[in-house]
Computed example of a mutant assay.
Amino acid sequence: MQRSGFKRIADPFQLPAPLRGGVVAIGNFDGVHRGHQAVLGKALAEAQRRAVPALVLTFDPHPRTVFRPDVPLFILTPPPVKAQLVAELGFDAMVEQRFTRDFASNSAEDFVIGVLDRGLGISHVVTGFDFHFGKDRQGGPAFLMASGEKHGFGVTLVDAFRDEGAEVISSSRIRQLLTEGEVVQAAGLLGYRYTVEAQVTGGKRLGRTLGFPTANMMLSPSVTLKHGIYAVRFRKADGTLFDGVASFGRRPTVDENGAPLLETYVFDFSGDLYGETCAVSFFGYLRGEEKFDGLDALVAQMKRDEAEARAMLAGVRPLSALDLTVAFP
Rank of each mutant, 00 (worst) to 15 (best):
F6G: 09
Y265D: 13
S222M: 06
F292I: 08
L144P: 01
S147V: 04
L273H: 13
P213Y: 15
G140F: 00
D163L: 13
G165M: 09
D255R: 10
G284V: 05
T77G: 00
F131T: 06
G191E: 13
T65D: 07
A237N: 02
G165S: 14
R233Q: 07
L298V: 08
G294S: 04
A297M: 07
T325C: 07
Q14N: 11
Y194F: 15
S147K: 13
D255K: 10
L19W: 02
D238V: 04
G140L: 06
S270L: 12
F248N: 05
D130I: 02
L295A: 08
A47Y: 00
L120D: 01
K303R: 15
A43C: 14
E46P: 03
T58H: 00
G31H: 00
T209N: 14
G139K: 02
G211C: 10
I26P: 00
A47V: 02
D110P: 08
T264F: 04
V266M: 04
G211L: 10
E182V: 04
I75L: 09
P72N: 09
P16A: 09
Y230A: 07
G41A: 13
L206W: 08
V52M: 11
V86W: 00
Y192H: 15
P61S: 03
E88Q: 11
D130A: 05
L313R: 02
T127W: 00
D159R: 14
A215Q: 11
H33F: 12
I174P: 03
E306L: 03
S170L: 04
F267D: 06
V196C: 07
G203F: 09
D130R: 00
Y230L: 09
G90E: 01
F67G: 00
G114I: 01
N28K: 08
G41F: 15
M217V: 15
D163S: 14
V223M: 10
V24Q: 00
K7Q: 10
D11T: 04
Q199W: 12
H33E: 11
T201S: 12
Q185L: 04
F212N: 14
G154T: 01
L57W: 03
I169G: 05
K303L: 11
L189C: 06
A237R: 07
F6V: 02
G239K: 04
G271A: 12
P79D: 00
V316D: 14
A45V: 06
L322F: 14
M218W: 13
K204I: 05
R193G: 06
K236V: 01
D30C: 03
M1N: 04
E289G: 02
M1G: 07
S107P: 13
K7I: 07
R50T: 10
S107W: 02
S123Q: 08
G165N: 15
S105T: 05
R50C: 11
G140Y: 01
Y285E: 11
P329S: 14
R310Y: 02
V39I: 15
P260D: 02
R162F: 08
V23F: 01
G140P: 10
R68S: 13
G140T: 08
A83L: 01
A146N: 13
R193A: 11
G284H: 12
E263S: 15
G152D: 12
A93G: 05
G148T: 09
E96Q: 10
